[in-house]
Design a protein around this nucleic acid. Structure first.
Length: 475
DNA sequence: TGAAATGTTGGGGCG
DNA sequence: ACGCCCCAACATTTC
């Protein structure tokens, strides 16, 4: 690449697609040849304890798809491995770039990283253009009448919906400017092993990756969105969109999803749109209150006297608490990297309010395991369940794991998918197997305490204890 | 985006 | 027939 031709760099991060991509659109439209780059950032990857990580594999497949698509257009994706803070300014300088484009990221670590990159680019006299892309409304776009960020979801949602119009839902027509992609021979793609990772069961799970995978899942969901409201709370049903990993890594743009929900209408689409608004809400909240990463949003709940029993925590992680729906949810997470949203609430409530374990322990575990892990949503969800958060559920609201099980998995169909030990357990006892009389246990071959764990806590006792714990912190 | 405790009502069994 | 008890069903309040 002759250094006298000014070029641009488009830095892909959590936006692994080529269509409706804000940064790519702005880069291409500026007219200079655009070099696309992705960095497997050791600053992030080195912190992953488990070197068989479904997310790295998901990203790898998605990056490969973007790269192949760019190569069909006569360009390529430069795939680097190292510290993004150093590599991006280096690459930009090396290519003789006049500008670097990327999309906003609202996580504290990402903000710090981007600030470093901004400094280094400025020192080299290279422009750094950043765009909103991963949310509909970011940071200060939706504020209260008093000009402050919302602290309660419902009024936020109302203001969000009021502000919404065609403008915010339109797609960036990147494909119109693809002829501005820098022409380039195909580049190299380090394989998983070179990145220091091992393959997972992602293939076995038939997880659709990349832009094409996102399109497949989206089409599948669109066909059943009318049933979303009725079916979404039942983990045994195919009720939810399963798009969360794609939304996380940007293989599908949020605008396409919000657009569909908004223009389709109906109770299913409206309920789903509301979930997308929760996502914006938590991103906005994290941006304004980065302290939530390590602390309760409500400071008085930083003083909760947690029990933090390590044996109970291990049982919770492994799906061996003796509460069948809780265990099924945790095993789904361990085996697939996904957990149904209803079960995220049930298992989180159980950890915090039945086991009295610090919500941060659970948050960290989900962060390690979830394919769709997103700091803002995960933290927001945990603080909601733990009652420590912004617009969280009241602290005295405690889920009964058995009642939740009866209500949301009435036939125990989901439980049996992940807790096969209970295969021969009579339906009546599937939600609370320890109530199975000893004689019945022998008859159907499930000895509680041997074939399936006895409950590690008594819910009624735990509930009273937790109410005390919260009362002391809030009093 | 609850659950449990407590209060109220009304029907039926029964002396 | 009547009062009394029991308790299910529903409503309210409390956590």
């Amino acid at each position: 690449m002759p250094e006298n031709i000014p070029v641009s760099v488009c830095w892909f991060r959590r936006d692994l697609r080529l269509h409706d991509h804000a940064a790519l659109y702005h880069a291409l439209k500026a007219g200079r040849p655009v070099h696309c780059v992705f960095v497997f950032d050791t600053g992030i990857l080195d912190a992953l304890a488990d070197k068989a990580d479904r997310r790295v594999e998901f990203i790898w497949h998605s990056v490969r798809e973007v790269k192949q698509a760019l190569e069909q257009l006569g360009s390529t994706l430069h795939v680097l491995h190292g510290s993004a803070r150093q590599l991006i300014p280096q690459l930009a300088a090396q290519l003789g770039a006049q500008a670097v484009y990327c999309n906003h990221d609202y996580e504290p670590d990402a903000i710090a990283r981007d600030a470093t990159v901004a400094e280094q680019l400025a020192a080299r006299n290279i422009d750094f253009h950043r765009s909103k892309d991963q949310v509909i409304f970011e940071r200060d776009e939706v504020l209260t009448g008093g000009g402050k960020p919302y602290a309660v979801f419902t009024p936020y949602k109302n203001a969000w919906l009021k502000k919404l119009d065609d403008f915010y839902l339109r797609a960036y027509p990147t494909e119109r400017y693809f002829d501005h992609l820098a022409s380039s021979p195909p580049g190299a793609l380090p394989d998983l092993a070179e990145l220091g990772f091992q393959p997972t069961n992602l293939r076995e799970l038939a997880m659709p990756c990349g832009m094409s995978g996102a399109a497949t899942l989206f089409a599948d969901f669109v066909a059943r969105i009318d049933r979303y409201q009725q079916a979404r709370d039942f983990p045994a049903l195919k009720g939810v969109s399963y798009l969360s990993p794609h939304l996380r890594f940007g293989t599908i743009p949020i605008r396409a999803l919000a657009r569909h929900a908004h223009y389709t209408g109906g109770p299913g689409a409206q309920t789903w749109l509301s979930e997308l608004i929760w996502r914006d809400f938590y991103q906005m909240l994290l941006y304004h209150h980065p302290h939530v990463v390590n602390h309760a949003y409500k400071p008085q709940f930083d003083g909760l006297a947690w029990g933090n029993n390590p044996d109970w925590f291990a049982a919770w992680c492994a799906g061996r608490t003796g509460y069948s729906l809780v265990d099924a949810g945790m095993r789904q997470l361990n085996q697939t990297g996904f957990m149904h949203n209803r079960l995220r609430m049930v298992t989180a409530s159980f950890l915090v309010k039945d086991l009295q374990i610090d919500w941060r322990w659970g948050e960290r575990y989900f962060a390690q395991k979830l394919l769709d892990f997103d700091l803002a949503s995960n933290n927001g969800g945990w603080q909601w369940a733990a009652s420590t958060g912004c617009d969280a559920q009241p602290w005295f609201r405690i889920f009964n794991p058995v009642t939740q099980s009866k209500r949301f998995d009435p036939q125990g169909k989901f439980i049996l998918r992940y807790v096969p030990e209970l295969d021969h357990c009579p339906d009546k006892f599937i939600h609370a197997p320890w109530l199975l009389p000893r004689s019945e246990q022998l008859r159907c071959g499930i000895e509680i305490g041997r074939d399936y764990p006895a409950p590690i806590v008594d819910h009624a006792v735990a509930r009273a204890k937790t109410l005390e714990m919260f009362k002391r912190a809030s009093g």
